[in-house]
């Protein structure tokens, strides 16, 4: 249960951080030099959360027997790493579309982890009838 919530928290923080990136980039290109530093700091934050999330995803995999959060996070972290260096190199042809894709991917992951508790998703496949109360439980949590 805790593991699932940690994953949710990390993915949420990750999503918040990554939404800052186009914002800072836009402010920077509007002529505010300081926003370049924010964009760089944001890149550090986003990438760092990504790596922590990767560790959490490994724990999810081990404890909850769910591999997909790890696979998704690994792909995301790989994209963010490429994105980081594309930005540093000024390779905008890659940096812009990859940035959009990374945000889309993280938004999808955000929906996936909040859609249903990670813990119960496993059981769902095995013993579906028991799962009926699950959505109510989720709503109660929120």
């Amino acid at each position: 249960m805790v593991t699932g919530w940690v994953m949710r928290a990390l993915v949420s923080a990750h999503a918040v951080a990554i939404f800052g990136q186009p914002v800072f980039a836009g402010i920077y290109l509007s002529g505010d030099y300081d926003a370049l530093r924010w964009h760089a700091a944001g890149a550090n934050v986003v990438t760092s959360i990504g790596y922590v999330q990767l560790i959490a995803a490994i724990v999810v995999w081990v404890r909850l027997r769910q591999a997909w959060p790890f696979a998704a996070t690994l792909a995301l972290v790989a994209a963010e790493t490429v994105q980081y260096f594309a930005g540093m190199d000024g390779a905008l042809w890659l940096h812009l579309p990859l940035g959009v894709l990374t945000i889309v991917a993280l938004a999808v992951l955000f929906i996936a982890v909040w859609r249903q508790p990670l813990k119960q998703a496993v059981q769902q496949a095995v013993q579906q009838p028991v799962l009926r109360p699950a959505p109510r439980e989720e709503n109660a949590d929120a």
Binding site: P97, L98, L101
Partner: peptide
């Protein structure tokens, strides 16, 4: 994603 990046 692949199509977008490849096009770029």
């Amino acid at each position: 994603a692949v199509t977008g990046l490849a096009t770029s």
